[in-house]
C-alpha cells in the first residue's frame, strides 16, 4: 500500500487522515490508516465485521479520540470541537432518533442544534427528499424501521454537511428508500459533499463510489480509485477478507 492515498488532487481535501490508529485496550481497531478525500468524492469502505470500519467513522465523527496519528476535517484537526462537528453529517444503522418525538420534531431539533436559522424550510426540504413529509407528525415509535432510517438520513442531511459519514445507511431501507438515499447521496456529491460510506453490499457501495477500500484488521487491505475499480476483483478481495476473518 502507498503511504499516502489521495482521492482527488485539485481541491483541498475535506478529509485528511494520516497513520490514524485507535486502540481499545490491547486491541487495535484501526491500525495506521492513511487517506484523503476531496470534495465531491465518495469512498466506499468494505470489510468483514470487526475490521475497524465503524471505529474509523466514529473517530472522524469526533465520537472517539484517535490513539495515534492524525485526522483533519475541512482543515480542522480532530477531535476538533464544534466547528469540525458542524461540517459532518453522520448516518448510522442506529437511527439516533427520539422515539417519543415526530420526524419533524427530531429533524427540527437537529437543525436548531446545528444553528440553522429559519430552520423550518430546511426541515421540510430534508423530510421531502426522503419522502417523509406525509408522516412528519407521526411519533417515531409508530413508524417502520425503514421509515425511521429515512428520518435518520433526513436528520443527518439537514445542515448540508461538507462530509457525510454513512455507516451501513441502507440498513432497513426498502427498495424505494434505497433509491431515494442513492439519489440524495448523488446530489450531495454533485454539490461538493465528500462521502464515506460503509456497507457490506458491494454493488451499492461501488455504484456510489469514486474510490473504494477493503479494510481488514484495522488496515486498508486494498484501495483503488474509480477508474481502477473492478467489481469482480473487488468481490474476490472482499471474500478473501471475509474468509480470513473466519
Amino acid at each position: 500500500m502507498p503511504s499516502a492515498i489521495s482521492t482527488g488532487a485539485s481541491a483541498p481535501p475535506i478529509v485528511e487522515v494520516a497513520e490514524l490508529a485507535r486502540e481499545f485496550g490491547s486491541r487495535r481497531a484501526v491500525a495506521g490508516v492513511t487517506f484523503s478525500l476531496a470534495p465531491g468524492k465518495c469512498l466506499a469502505l468494505f470489510g468483514p465485521n470487526g475490521a475497524g470500519k465503524t471505529t474509523l467513522l466514529r473517530v472522524l465523527a469526533g465520537l472517539l479520540k484517535p490513539t495515534s496519528g492524525s485526522a483533519r476535517v475541512a482543515g480542522i484537526p480532530l477531535p476538533g470541537g464544534p466547528l469540525a462537528r458542524s461540517r459532518i453529517g453522520l448516518i448510522s444503522h442506529h437511527t439516533m432518533l427520539y422515539e417519543a418525538l415526530s420526524p419533524r420534531e427530531n429533524v427540527s431539533f437537529t437543525a436548531q442544534l446545528y444553528g440553522i436559522r429559519d430552520s423550518r424550510a430546511r426541515v421540510e426540504d430534508s423530510l421531502r427528499r426522503m419522502s417523509m413529509l406525509e408522516r412528519a407528525d407521526t411519533p417515531i415509535r409508530s413508524l417502520s424501521r425503514g421509515m425511521q432510517q429515512r428520518v435518520s438520513i433526513a436528520r443527518a442531511m439537514v445542515h448540508s454537511p461538507q462530509l457525510v459519514l454513512a455507516d451501513e445507511p441502507y440498513s432497513g431501507l426498502d427498495e424505494s428508500g434505497a433509491r431515494a438515499l442513492t439519489a440524495l447521496l448523488g446530489e450531495l456529491r454533485s454539490a461538493g459533499t465528500a462521502i464515506i460510506v460503509v456497507t457490506h453490499n458491494l454493488a451499492e457501495g461501488l455504484s456510489l463510489a469514486t474510490h473504494a477500500a477493503v479494510m481488514q484488521r484495522g488496515k486498508f487491505l486494498r484501495y483503488d480509485s474509480a477508474d481502477r475499480i473492478d467489481a469482480g476483483s473487488y468481490a474476490a478481495t472482499y471474500r478473501e477478507a471475509l474468509a480470513a476473518n473466519g
Binding site: A61, G62, L63, G81, P82, L83, R85, S86, I88, L90, S92, H94, T95, M96, L97, Y98, E99, A100, T110, L113, Y114, G115, Q148, R155
Partner: peptide, 18 residues
C-alpha cells in the same frame, strides 16, 4: 436513559453542541 434508545446520544455528541 432517553438517549440510549437507538444511540440518540451519538447524534448529540456528533453535533456542534459542546
Amino acid at each position: 436513559g432517553v438517549e440510549t434508545a437507538d444511540h440518540a446520544i451519538d447524534g448529540l455528541l456528533a453535533s456542534p453542541a459542546s
